[in-house]
Simulated scan of single mutants.
Amino acid sequence: MKKLLTGFINLFTLVFILAGCSDNSTPVEGEQYQLLPANLSTYRLAPVTEIFSLTCGHCRKMESIIPELENLTSEHFGKLHVTFNEGAKIGAMIYYTAVMQLGNIPDAAMMEELFAAVQMGEGSTLTDRQAAIEKAFTDRNLATPYHLTQEQQSKVLGMIQTANKVSQDGEIKAVPTFVVKGKYQVITSGHKDVEGIAKTISYLLTQP
C-alpha cells in the first residue's frame, strides 16, 4: 500500500512538473494581440492583412518572412500601406500606383525593388531614387507614379484615402503588424519567432 501510494505521488508530481513547464500556446490579449478600437471588416480587408510602409526597414525584412507565414497559416495575406506621416504618404502613392495597374499586390521581386528605391542609402539623391522607382515600373510596362493620367490619379487617390481611413479607425501607429478578421491586431514584438506569430494569427482566425 505504501509503495502504491508513493508511486501515485511520484506520478502526480511528474505530471504537475510537466504541466508547469509546458508551453501555453494560447495567445494572450495584451501580450500577443489586441482588439482594435473599431471593426475594420467593413473595408473588406483580407482575413489577414499586413499593415506596412515602404519607408519602414522592419517592413522590408518582414517581406521575406511573409511566404513562410502564409504557408504556416494556410492564408494568402493582403496588404495595406499606412499614411501616418509624409514619408508614408509618398510610399502609399508609389505602392498603390502599382496595385491600381496590376489589380493585385506586386510580386516579391517588385516589392523588393520598391523598398530598395524608397530606402536608398546615404549618398543617393532624389533623382537617384526617382530613377529607381521609375525603373521598377517601366521594366514591367507600367505607368510610373510620375506619369499617371487624371483617371489613374483619381483611382490611386481613392485607394490612399481608404488606407488612411483604415489606419485612423484602427489607430494603427506602428508597422509592420497584422490585422486579422478586421478585429484583431497582432503585437509582433510579443513573439519570439515566426512560428509564434503564425500561431497567434491562426488562433485569431478561429475567434468570432
Rank of each mutant, 00 (worst) to 15 (best):
P106K: 01
P106V: 03
V99E: 11
T127I: 11
Q101C: 03
E151R: 11
H147S: 14
P106W: 00
A92C: 08
Y95A: 10
S154V: 02
A116H: 13
E134N: 12
A88K: 02
Q101S: 09
A136H: 00
K135R: 13
D139G: 01
M110V: 03
I133F: 07
L114D: 01
G123V: 08
N104E: 10
K89V: 07
D128W: 06
Q119K: 10
M110H: 00
A132W: 12
Q101K: 04
D139V: 00
Q152H: 04
Q119E: 11
G121H: 06
V118Q: 14
A116G: 11
D107W: 01
Q152M: 08
G103K: 09
A131V: 07
P145D: 13
A109N: 15
K135T: 12
P145E: 12
A98M: 09
S154Y: 04
M93K: 15
E151F: 05
A143H: 15
V118T: 14
N141Y: 14
D128V: 08
T127K: 14
S154R: 04
V118K: 03
I105K: 03
K89H: 06
G123M: 11
V118A: 05
E134D: 14
K135A: 13
D107S: 08
A143V: 04
G123L: 05
M120G: 09
Q101H: 09
Q152W: 06
T144L: 04
P106C: 06
T144C: 07
A131C: 03
G103P: 04
A108P: 04
F137S: 00
D107G: 09
M93I: 13
T144Q: 08
G121P: 01
A143K: 14
I90G: 09
I90L: 11
L142D: 04
G91V: 08
H147C: 07
A88I: 02
Q130C: 06
A109L: 10
E113F: 01
Q119A: 08
A131E: 07
I105Y: 03
A117N: 05
I94E: 00
L114Q: 04
T138V: 13
